[in-house]
């Protein structure tokens, strides 16, 4: 019986990792929807979003608005300017809200 509850502690860190990865997949899906001309699967966490085809300053506002609508998080112009990759954006959102 005791063995039943004897869960190896690493499973929790693994679980946290899996949940975070799933959240990143969702986050990327939202961004992909805004870059509607790009093929699905092209954008990953490491993608430098400003290098994507179709990027413009208008896209910056579109992403900020999408993040606001999905997560109720407002990233400032200064925060956005410091972000390079999709992961950077994801981390900013994650730090602000339990997603």
């Amino acid at each position: 019986m005791n063995d039943y509850f004897n869960i190896h502690p690493t499973i929790f860190s693994n679980l946290a990792y899996i949940i975070s990865a799933m959240q990143l997949v969702n986050f990327i899906a939202h961004i992909e929807e805004e870059f509607e001309d790009l093929p699905k699967g092209l954008i990953v966490g490491e993608t430098a979003f400003r290098q994507l085809e179709g990027w413009s300053s208008m896209m910056a506002l579109i992403l900020i608005a999408r993040i606001d609508s999905e997560y109720n998080v407002n990233l400032s112009a200064e925060e956005l300017a410091e972000a390079t990759s999709v992961n950077d954006l994801f981390d900013l959102v994650k730090a602000r809200v339990a997603i």
Partner: peptide
């Protein structure tokens, strides 16, 4: 005009 900061301000 700082479009992003105006967006954040307005929607809040």
């Amino acid at each position: 005009l700082n479009g992003i900061n105006v967006f954040n301000f307005s929607v809040q």
